[in-house]
């Protein structure tokens, strides 16, 4: 049977999710995801024409916050867990080609 998801799709999805997969991972993942998708794909055959999708289970609207400032974190606390902070800022490698 044709797998539900193929190697190229696995690689594409891994790139979207920013997950580096080893060759073995790609292999295993392709098999496992296909198996799971085959199961969940059963809902694809249900006739749900006209059924409203649930986006929230609570029946609330307009839950808002007044525009009143609350204290922010001191800079050192904000940066406390950051790898390699610099000059009060979070440091990251340059984006380069990856936009």
């Amino acid at each position: 049977m044709r797998p539900m998801i193929d190697r190229d799709q696995v690689l594409h999805v891994a790139r979207l999710a920013r997950l580096r997969l080893s060759e073995d991972d790609v292999e295993t993942m392709t098999g496992e995801l296909s198996g799971i998708l085959e199961h969940v794909d059963r809902i694809g055959n249900l006739d749900l024409e006209g059924v409203e999708p649930t986006s929230h289970v609570v029946a609330l609207e307009n839950v808002l916050r007044p525009d009143v400032p609350r204290p922010s974190l001191p800079q050192d606390v904000a940066l406390a867990s950051a790898p390699e902070p610099l000059n009060g800022a979070f440091r990251v490698p340059s984006p380069q080609a990856d936009a």
Binding site: V68, P69, R70, S72, L73, P74, G88
Partner: peptide, 23 residues
């Protein structure tokens, strides 16, 4: 506005970096 869209941090321009942040 006085504060950000989804949290109570104050909005301001030109301050020290990362002094208007919260979790």
């Amino acid at each position: 506005t006085k504060t950000k869209m989804f949290c109570g941090c104050e909005l301001s321009f030109g301050d020290e970096p990362n002094v208007h942040t919260c979790p």
